[in-house]
Amino acid sequence: MTSEIDHLVTSGTFSLDGGTWDVDNNVWIIGDEREAIVIDAAHDAAAIRDALGGRTLKAIVSTHAHNDHIDAAPVLADATGAPILLHPADLPLWEMTHPDRRPDGELADGQTLTVGGIELKVLHTPGHAPGAVCLYAPELGTVFTGDTLFQGGPGATGRSFSDFPTIIGSIREKLLALPGDTKVRTGHGDSTTIGDEAPHLQEWLDRGH
């Protein structure tokens, strides 16, 4: 069976520390013609369900718990029966958006999720958020980085629950260790590769010492 990556862009708002901003989010769907995993159920549960095309949703994986990455997760979970998975360090952020609905399972560094014959390795990459994770699919030559790494540099660390030296350490230890041709599929904006970002990131890494 053919493995595939589907990409959906949804629009909504991000709110934290008393501010609200309009954002476009990347939603990634990984699987085959029978089953799939959704990475970051953002804003529009109906559009995400439509993009599944009748496939069985095995899990809703949250790269972190900022509201724009999880706001549609409970509705999508209720509609499909799929569990919501989140690193437990992000529960305080999760509860700011969904105080009455906890995730269904936990993500842990080194854990492997399998869907449609594809293995996704969980990499705990705190910094943008305490429980931020990336998902590395070696067979597909890609890593889903949420808001940890973008085209042009690390994710933002200027708001609550974030820390610049921590995100620099996460990128150095977990992401720059991946092959240079690994495609980086981000939580917002365009994709890139580890090789394209490494020279630029060295400047950020130097500032983190």
Rank of each mutant, 00 (worst) to 15 (best):
T97H: 08
T97P: 05
T97F: 11
H98Y: 08
H98G: 11
H98V: 10
H98D: 07
H98M: 11
H98P: 10
H98K: 08
P99H: 06
P99L: 08
P99R: 01
P99E: 05
P99Q: 04
D100M: 05
D100L: 10
R101P: 04
R101G: 10
R101A: 09
R101M: 09
R102S: 14
R102I: 06
R102V: 12
R102M: 14
R102G: 12
R102W: 07
R102C: 07
P103L: 07
P103C: 07
P103V: 12
D104G: 13
D104E: 06
D104P: 06
G105E: 10
G105Q: 12
G105H: 07
E106N: 12
E106S: 11
E106F: 08
E106R: 06
L107K: 00
L107Y: 04
L107M: 10
L107C: 03
A108E: 15
A108G: 04
A108R: 14
D109I: 02
D109N: 09
D109A: 05
D109H: 11
G110I: 11
Q111W: 06
Q111V: 07
Q111N: 08
T112Y: 10
T112C: 12
L113I: 12
L113M: 12
L113P: 04
T114K: 13
T114S: 15
T114V: 13
T114M: 13
T114G: 00
V115A: 00
G116K: 01
G116I: 07
G116N: 04
G116Y: 06
G116H: 04
G117Q: 10
I118K: 01
I118T: 15
I118L: 11
I118A: 11
E119Q: 14
E119M: 06
E119S: 14
L120M: 15
L120W: 00
L120R: 02
K121S: 05
K121W: 13
V122M: 02
V122K: 01
V122N: 00
V122G: 04
V122T: 15
L123E: 00
L123S: 04
L123G: 03
H124K: 01
H124L: 09
T125N: 02
T125S: 03
T125R: 02
P126M: 00
P126V: 03
G127S: 05
G127E: 00
G127A: 07
G127P: 00
G127W: 00
H128N: 13
H128L: 02
H128R: 01
H128G: 15
H128A: 09
A129I: 03
A129Q: 01
A129P: 04
P130C: 05
P130E: 15
P130F: 14
P130A: 08
G131I: 12
G131F: 14
G131Q: 09
G131A: 10
A132H: 15
A132V: 03
A132W: 04
A132T: 05
A132I: 05
A132M: 08
V133F: 03
V133A: 02
V133R: 01
C134N: 04
